[in-house]
Design a protein around this nucleic acid. Structure first.
Lengths: 166, 166
DNA sequence: AGTTTGGCGAAATATTATTGCGCCCGTATT
DNA sequence: AATACGGGCGCAATAATATTTCGCCAAACT
């Protein structure tokens, strides 16, 4: 099932669930303009087709004591696929690393990290990250504040695009 | 209400809902070891206290045709607070910008952007971002692939920490 | 010891989710 | 053009969940 098979109702469902992942199916059905049973069927289909990867509560890290958020730019010594994979695997095993993206350009990876405090992060940085095999360079930047945090898809753009190509 | 007021059950609730935001309250209650009514009360309390900022379906952007993901490092000409705020406001108004973080160091902001294709991103980059008032420099890096995407809180670290300080 | 406070959980009720099924519409077939 | 599918909708019935109500227990106060 590809994106082209989605009709406007499917996209509305995705948009609504992205905005409120705990919305009841009844409410969702009302909003997208169909009755509950077909709405639930569509939802399940979208989940199984992989358009919806999961549902998550957005937990406030700072409230929970994770005061420090850091972006780390990592360069490796070797960019052989096996070495890249090995590094990615390490990242998956580090709890403080929440995101790991491979980039083009001079920097090989960008990591988004969290930590309860600076010293925890520092010891991770020097003891784990910088010390890891194949890591050539690490540049870090502390997050001062987040002005926008809306991971996901800009459905407005998607709809606009589709109306153009029609 | 501060983090210190959370007991192990509250933290378990947060951890479970972060992992599966659509879990039923009945299932959640079973997992955290209390009955449904108090579980629901705790959940509401955690929401109202801001520990839970919201619930979101994780929608697969690539499946929906957003093939391009980019990190943009932005430097401004002026770092006066009013200028910083103005830039943040612009970011909030740009649908292609999904995240905007203010950083310390030489780069002022890092943006995570998405786009349906490279040319859409390019025109945003040249027509909007680089062209915006007060923007001095923009460096972009395409995301080749994402190795880890688990925004949120590493509860394992939190629990470990609390058991230490006990 | 009596009282207040906070939180639990059984039970009742209100909502939701889910299933089963017949209907309608667009398309293919003869 | 008439007939048979196939897909998807929604009503109606049933199963699960959510939510409220209320009495009980235990720890903290006085």
């Amino acid at each position: 099932m590809s994106a082209s098979k989605l009709d406007p109702i499917d996209r509305k469902i995705l948009a609504e669930l992205q905005a409120d992942g705990r919305m009841t199916n009844v409410e969702l059905a009302k909003r997208v303009g169909i009755s509950a049973p077909p709405c639930l069927r569509r939802m399940r289909t979208l989940e199984e087709a992989g358009f919806i990867r999961g549902y998550h509560a957005q937990v406030d890290g700072r409230e929970l004591g994770f005061e420090v958020q850091v972006f780390a730019m990592v360069g490796l010594k070797s960019q052989a696929e096996s070495d890249l994979s090995a590094f990615e695997q390490k990242c998956r095993s580090w709890p403080l690393v929440r995101e790991c993206h491979m980039l083009n350009g001079e920097v090989d990876f960008i990591l988004k990290c969290v930590a309860p405090d600076l010293s925890t992060f520092q010891s991770f940085l020097t003891g784990e990250l910088t010390a890891a095999d194949n890591v050539a360079s690490v540049k870090t930047s502390l997050v001062i504040r987040a002005a926008k945090e809306e991971p996901g898809v800009p459905f407005e753009v998607l709809e606009h695009r589709l109306s153009q190509s029609a």
